[in-house]
């Protein structure tokens, strides 16, 4: 049994639903924040995810960071060295999807020598009539950046667990690779 720990950076444009999603995780899907309250700084949430069919778990330290451009500079100082990327856009807003590359570059600059696995999440899937970003387009973009793609609705509590489990599984797989590697190392 092992408990892994990962610093998971939650970013994306303002009002795409990052905090709504993170509150959903924290309350195990019971609490949808109906009134919008903009995150001005960063909020830290801890969520422990069990890896199915093992006794292992991953503690995700989710850093919910403000999306508004003018606040990002101040928040960046709190990012530290992230282990995982949780990138969110609004399915009803093409510009929020277009921003994803900028977000990715910005986060990568904090990663030093570490690779940054993660997920791309299209939120607000309940607003299907107003959808501006096709699933196939988002899926393709995510794949080209090495991210897994998920669609969620924090409001309808739909599929919210999937990206978390995806992140935890990815980190767990990295750990297993690392263990296999060092078990086969020669002496220095």
């Amino acid at each position: 049994m092992v408990k892994l720990r990962a610093r998971c950076l939650l970013v994306g444009d303002a009002a795409v639903g990052k905090s709504a999603l993170s509150h959903m995780f924290h309350s195990d899907g019971t609490l949808f924040q109906k009134n919008y309250s903009m995150t001005a700084g960063v909020e830290l949430l801890m969520k422990c995810v069990q890896i199915p069919e093992t006794s292992d778990s991953v503690e995700l330290y989710i850093i919910d960071s403000a999306g508004k451009q003018t606040l990002v500079d101040a928040c960046e100082k709190m990012w530290g060295e992230p282990s995982l990327l949780f990138l969110v856009f609004d399915l009803t807003s093409e510009p929020s999807f277009a921003s994803c590359s900028h977000w990715m570059e910005r986060v990568r600059a904090h990663c030093g020598d570490l690779q940054l696995p993660g997920v791309l999440v299209g939120n607000k899937s309940d607003l299907s009539a107003r959808r501006e970003v096709e699933a196939s387009v988002a899926q393709h973009w995510a794949q080209s950046r090495g991210l897994d793609y998920h669609e969620t609705s924090a409001k309808e509590m739909e599929n919210c667990e999937a990206p978390l489990l995806g992140l935890a599984r990815t980190f767990h797989a990295l750990y297993q690779d690392h263990r296999d590697t060092i078990q086969n190392l020669g002496p220095g």
């Binding site: 092992v2 720990r5 990962a6 610093r7 330290y61 282990s83 980190f171 263990r179």
Partner: peptide, 26 residues
Amino acid sequence: SSDENHPPENIIDGNTSTFWTSTGMF
């Protein structure tokens, strides 16, 4: 950090084929 299969005692057992590993974050 601790993985029960790779405990910290492995650091001081004099053997480089056993190890202690971190389990994430610095």
